[in-house]
Amino acid sequence: MAGKKRAKVPLEFRNTPLADALQTQDMAALAFALRHGPTVVPLLRPGQRDDPRDAGEVWTYRDPNTGDIALLLFSDAAHKPASLPPAVALQSPEWLRTFLGAHEGEITTVFFDIAGPHPMQATPADLIAALDA
C-alpha cells in the first residue's frame, strides 16, 4: 500500500502571545513571549533554502540624522510595513538572544510592531536580560 502524504501545515509568521503582550504593553508578558516563541524579523536578503546555516541578512534601520541603528521586530508578518524589504524570517528565542548579544553595541533600540497596532520599544540590554531570565 502506498503511504499517504500528509498535507503540510503552512508556516505561520506570527507569535500570538507577543501580539497580546504588545497590546497590553506588559514588559513581563513581552519577555515571556520572547523566551517561548518566535519573532518575525525583516530580511534584507533571504537565506538560501538549501543551506540551513544561511538565515539570511537581517534588515536594520539607520537614522540618517543620528546614525543610530534600530532593529525592527514584529509579532506578525502582517504588521510589517510594505515599505520594508519583503522577505521575513521566523527566528527562535535562541537566535534573538545571540543576535542581540552580537550586536548590542551597535543597536540602540529595538522596536516591536513599529507601525502598529501596538508599538513598543526596548533597549537591547533590556531584551537580553528578559531572554536570560
Rank of each mutant, 00 (worst) to 15 (best):
A2T: 09
G3L: 13
K4P: 05
K4Y: 12
R6G: 07
R6I: 01
A7L: 11
K8W: 03
K8F: 07
K8Q: 13
V9Y: 04
P10K: 12
P10L: 05
T16D: 15
T16S: 12
P17F: 07
L18H: 03
A19P: 07
L22Q: 06
L22K: 08
Q23T: 14
T24F: 14
T24N: 12
M27Q: 10
M27Y: 10
M27L: 05
M27T: 11
M27E: 10
A29P: 07
F32E: 15
A33S: 01
A33W: 00
L34I: 01
H36T: 14
P38I: 04
T39N: 00
T39H: 00
P42M: 04
L43C: 04
L43H: 00
L44P: 04
R45F: 06
P46S: 02
G47C: 01
G47T: 00
D51Y: 04
D51A: 03
P52C: 05
R53M: 10
A55E: 04
G56H: 02
E57I: 15
V58T: 15
V58D: 06
W59N: 08
T60Q: 14
Y61K: 09
Y61H: 13
R62E: 15
D63G: 11
D63Y: 10
P64M: 07
P64V: 07
N65F: 10
T66G: 09
T66I: 05
G67W: 04
G67C: 07
G67S: 06
I69D: 15
A70W: 13
A70R: 13
L71H: 08
L71S: 11
L71Y: 09
L71M: 13
L72N: 12
L73T: 02
F74Q: 00
S75L: 02
S75F: 01
D76L: 03
A77K: 07
A77F: 03
A77E: 12
A78P: 04
A78V: 06
A78M: 01
H79L: 07
K80M: 11
K80V: 04
S83F: 14
L84Y: 13
L84Q: 09
P86C: 05
P86T: 00
A87S: 09
A87I: 05
V88Y: 06
L90Y: 04
L90P: 01
Q91W: 00
S92T: 13
P93A: 05
L96P: 01
R97C: 03
T98C: 07
F99Q: 14
L100P: 09
A102W: 12
H103E: 15
G105K: 14
E106L: 14
E106C: 12
I107G: 13
I107N: 11
T108E: 14
T109N: 12
T109K: 15
T109C: 13
V110P: 08
V110M: 07
F112T: 02
D113E: 04
I114D: 10
A115E: 10
G116M: 12
P117Y: 03
H118I: 08
H118F: 14
H118K: 08
H118E: 10
M120Y: 09
Q121G: 09
Q121D: 11
T123H: 07
T123W: 10
T123F: 02
P124M: 07
D126G: 05
I128R: 02
I128C: 06
I128E: 05
A129F: 05
A129R: 09
A129P: 01
A129Y: 02
L131I: 03
D132Q: 09
A133P: 09
